[in-house]
């Protein structure tokens, strides 16, 4: 068998696997719809505001609710030292600066 044939079969198989990943994503998303609806219901009923991704600090447990000093604990010059703080970006309002809701 020619080397190019083996390579083309390999690329074809990989492309097929990628196509199957799309199909799998579609099927899983369709299958997860009842769970997503249940999650929406939980948020609505319990009036939740955040995903429970990291529970180690309040600014990573509730990024949208924590006050803007919480990543620095009680020390104004301290850096956020929680590992999960390293992946969660501060809310948009913090990045853009404090802008009160004024008319």
């Amino acid at each position: 068998m020619r080397k190019s044939s083996i390579f083309l079969v390999f690329i074809g198989a990989c492309s097929l696997a990628l196509g199957l990943a799309f199909l799998d994503a579609h099927l899983q998303a369709a299958g997860d719809l009842p769970y997503l609806r249940q999650e929406i219901k939980v948020v609505e009923t319990l009036q939740l505001t955040d995903l429970c991704l990291a529970t180690e600090a309040r600014h990573t447990r509730h990024p949208s609710q924590a006050d803007w000093h919480s990543p620095f604990q009680s020390h104004p010059g301290a850096l956020d030292h929680f590992p999960s703080g390293g992946i969660i970006q501060p809310p948009e309002t913090v990045i853009k600066g404090y802008e009160p809701h004024r008319q």
Partner: peptide, 21 residues
């Protein structure tokens, strides 16, 4: 990624994300 998200916490969710590709 779970290792980083868990950080120092001992309580973390077991969740599987719905694929959006």
């Amino acid at each position: 990624f779970a290792t980083v998200i868990k950080g120092w916490s001992t309580l973390y969710p077991n969740f599987r994300l719905t694929p959006f590709l």
